[in-house]
Design a protein around this nucleic acid. Structure first.
Length: 286
DNA sequence: ACTGTCAACACGTGGT
DNA sequence: ACCACGTGTTGACAGT
């Protein structure tokens, strides 16, 4: 069979051969041109001759372009045969393939054969093009996903910094509050000993919890806390305050967390990344 | 000369 | 075993 682009070619090829495609948009395609003109098309297609690849090279001087005797004639998937040069697909072939790729990135055998016939390519060439195209798409997708994740990371980082700053302020308030109301705190501790201290062996921890509660109640109404905890409802805040003296309740120690959310952690939290790039069946993507 | 892109390949893998 | 696919690589080619 005669493959396009100098793939397999015959030494006894009719020079006045005309290739006809089957798809309507092949109108004006170089493929419809006589062989003579095929040999002198633009740089997009049928470019110059280059050394044949590897062991399969057998030179056939004079025939280096796309030649299609009969689409049904020979569309074997054999590798390069005679006088074949590695050539780029012409612009119309690529356009057609692109359109088909948009319809579906998976190439069913029937479609492969149709495309091969229509474009004067070997089915293997069509398959390889789709394979490479999927790889290119995935690379682009990876770049896009990376950008998205990077932006998310920056946003979370900024949020984290704001939280730390807020936390610092709160701690300062706690210290100030303790300084002015030490005696009140002592009394308060005595009053609350019965309810809380018997549940914990660490009385100082309870102290902190109580004072935190006080500060939150006195200086940060729930609607001011909420922006930093968008998923927390006012009712949740009340619940938190109510539970804060329980020993099992641990206040979030934001200041002890890693100062920056690791990007790899962010990635890890997204679970199996491969699922993101897998092809949905009969997909249509963009 | 160097570099980027692309067609084609080799190889490993999973599904049947 | 066969096939299709993903991945990495190679060589040709074009643009700079």
């Amino acid at each position: 069979m005669m493959a396009c682009n100098g793939m397999a070619s015959s030494s006894s090829f009719p020079s006045n051969f005309m290739f006809h495609t089957e798809t309507p948009y092949e109108e004006g395609n170089q493929l419809t041109a006589p062989l003579g003109s095929l040999l002198h098309t633009g740089p997009q297609d049928l470019r110059g001759v280059a050394p044949v690849m590897g062991k399969r090279s057998i030179s056939f001087p004079g025939i280096e372009s796309c030649e299609e005797m009969n689409a049904d004639d020979d569309l074997s998937d054999d590798g390069w045969q005679a006088g074949e040069k590695k050539k780029r697909l012409n612009i119309e072939q690529v356009r057609t393939l692109e359109r088909n790729f948009e319809l579906g990135n998976k190439l069913e055998p029937e479609r492969k054969m149709q495309l091969a016939r229509a474009l004067g390519l070997r089915p293997r060439q069509v398959a390889i093009w789709f394979q490479n195209r999927r790889a290119r798409w995935k690379t682009k997708q990876l770049e896009k996903d990376y950008d998205v994740l990077k932006r998310q990371f920056e946003a979370i980082k900024t949020e984290n910094e704001a939280l730390q700053s807020q936390n610092k302020k709160l701690r300062a308030e706690i210290l100030a509050f303790r300084g002015t109301e030490t005696s009140d705190m002592i009394n308060l501790n005595k009053e609350t000993e019965g309810s809380c201290s018997n549940r914990s062996e660490n009385s100082s921890e309870i102290n902190i919890d109580i004072s935190r509660t006080s500060v939150i109640e006195s200086s940060l109404p729930p609607h001011q806390i909420l922006p930093y905890f968008p998923s927390i409802r006012p009712a949740d805040i009340n619940q938190l305050l109510h539970n804060s003296c329980k020993p099992e309740f641990q206040c979030a120690k934001v200041e002890n967390e890693a100062p920056e959310v690791s990007f790899s952690n962010l990635l890890g939290s997204m679970g199996d990344q491969s699922a993101l790039w897998s092809w949905p069946d009969h997909h249509h993507f963009h």
